[in-house]
Design a protein around this nucleic acid. Structure first.
Length: 469
RNA sequence: GUCCCCGUCGUCUAGCCCGGUCCAGGACACCGGCCUUUCACGCCGGUAACGGGGGUUCAAAUCCCCCCGGGGACACCA
């Protein structure tokens, strides 16, 4: 039975990079009918927060990443780590270290000169006597000769010289365990078979392998996925803009789009770009994950989002649009919107809105008549004679018994014929009259959505406006 | 500095393992055109890449070596 885990540290938002790691793990588990566990790595008590944990969980749910076990929290497992650390000491594989920060600093400096790398010299390996006023840490007796070789499922064979290692700390002086230690203990005890994580952990792997061996555990398989970079090719971070998953929800992205986008960052299947979750579960394989880092490309995400908007179930889009209308302050919380009408709105706008937020703003004129008309549009399309045409159209609208697409065609044809003009002469003026802008969905759509009364009213008002120019 | 990883269009990538079918394919973006009452959608077309240098070979994006470039890790963070 294959078992994987996603182990975020709750020190902030769930960001894009973490989400992709979670997706890869989830896909791998689902593909192999294995188990996916969520584990919160909160051993750093000072930086971990409860809000962050809740946010990570919410973001995962939004993305549709369900887990089979957990969330475990490492803070609830401290007794386990302590026991394992003591076991290592009893077996002579770890030891107490009473060095002071000042002493350590001096050792590091000396080592930097000697090895070009700050390393602890292991002087407490032989020290037996506690030091007064110093709470000891526990250090692991690392093997520093030879090299650690392992096969990474993505990167291939990795050879790492052990000379880079030193006796690293596994238990802090306050009695809490450190990352490299807990990750090994947990992965082993939880029966994790494949460790799929960001390749910023590649250099930690040799230390962890030594720990697995010292503790007598089986070493799992490793798969290090390349990082996601910002446009400047450095590790993606807050300064590159929105990196938190939930921020994308707020901006009006669909979870399916983000999911699809993220999975294609580093993984591919021939020329295919659009994948459903079912397809991904079917097709996902670590061997198709690339080795090189990927730059986050917001334009492509936008394109994907638009694709999903265009193909999403209309009812669901309508519901989401409603949320955004409220959130963007376009309609009142208490406003009751006819679901059927809202569906028509979605249909009219989905091919020109790349996000839900955009859509909400594009259809704003449906809820409030334009307060002013687009300046350039007014200059270009509001001619003196336009007022007469508009009035004629308004009158025809008022007099029509039923307001349908066909009726609208008839109305326009009547007016065009009467004045012997082309549709061009009135199309943009009507659009501006209804929306205040020069761009919008088709005339039929906006007229129908605004409704007969309101349409006539707005067109008359525009006519009046032209007369006053 | 030391070590690890990576290097195909601006970006995401296919191809690399098993050299020729690749004067390198797809997608986003961009630029044209068509459609059209605007915008958009859609459709058609275009610009654009094997980091450099040496080998090996009849033949290299693909194999080997060196260099260069980029990223990451080197904490009582994870």
């Amino acid at each position: 039975m294959i078992k994987v885990r996603f182990a975020p540290s709750p020190t902030g938002h769930l960001h894009i990079g973490g989400a992709r790691t979670a997706i890869f793990n989830w896909l791998f588990a689902r593909h192999h009918s294995g188990r996916f566990v969520l584990r919160i790595e909160d051993t750093d008590k000072t930086r971990s927060t409860e809000e962050s944990i809740q946010e990570i969980i919410e973001a995962m749910k939004w993305l549709g990443l369900d887990w089979d076990e957990g969330p475990y929290r490492q803070t609830e497992r401290f007794d386990i780590y302590k026991k394992e650390a003591e076991r290592l000491i009893a077996e002579g594989k770890a030891y107490y270290c009473w060095c002071t920060p000042e002493e350590l600093e001096a050792i590091r400096e000396e080592s930097k000169g000697k090895f070009g790398i700050p390393k602890y010299d292991g002087r407490c390996r032989s020290r037996r006597e506690p030091r007064e006023g110093v709470n000891p840490v526990i250090r692991f007796k690392a093997r520093t000769e030879g090299e650690t070789v392992f096969k990474d499922l993505i990167k291939g064979e990795i050879r790492y010289p052990n000379s880079q290692l030193d006796d690293f700390i596994i238990m802090r002086s306050d009695g809490t365990p450190t990352y490299n230690f807990v990750v090994v203990v947990d992965d082993a005890l939880m029966g994790i078979t494949h460790v799929i994580r960001g390749d910023d952990h590649l250099n930690n792997t040799p230390k962890q392998i030594q720990l697995y061996e010292a503790l007598g555990y089986d070493v799992p398989q490793f798969a290090h996925v390349p990082m996601i970079l910002g446009p400047d090719k450095t590790k993606l971070s807050k300064r590159h803009g929105a990196v938190s998953v939930l921020a994308y929800r707020e901006e009006g992205y669909l979870p399916e789009a983000l999911f699809n986008f993220l999975v294609r960052l580093g993984w591919s299947h021939g020329d295919k770009e659009i994948f459903s979750k079912e397809e991904l579960i079917e097709l996902f394989d670590l061997k198709d994950v690339g080795k090189s880092p990927a730059v986050f490309n917001p334009d492509k995400l936008l394109w994907l989002n638009h694709h999903y908007i265009k193909t999403y179930p209309v009812e669901k889009l309508a519901e989401l649009l409603k949320e955004f209308l409220v959130k963007e302050g376009i309609v009142d919380t208490s406003a009751e919107l006819d679901p059927e009408w809202l569906k028509e709105v979605v249909i009219a706008f989905r091919e020109r809105a790349k996000t839900l937020k955009e859509m909400a703003h594009q259809c704003e004129f449906l809820f409030k008549a334009p307060e002013k008309y687009d300046e350039k549009g007014t200059k270009k399309f509001f001619k003196p004679e336009t007022a007469i045409y508009l009035e004629a159209i308004a009158e025809e609208i008022e007099n029509t018994s039923e307001f349908t697409k066909e009726a609208i065609d008839k109305i326009f044809n009547n007016v065009l014929e009467r004045f012997n003009i082309k549709l061009k002469a009135v199309a943009q003026p009507v659009r501006i009259a209804i929306t205040g802008r020069t761009v919008s969905p088709g005339l039929h759509e906006i007229l129908l959505l605004v409704g007969k009364e309101e349409a006539a009213k707005r067109i008359r008002r525009a006519a009046q406006y032209i007369k006053n120019l």
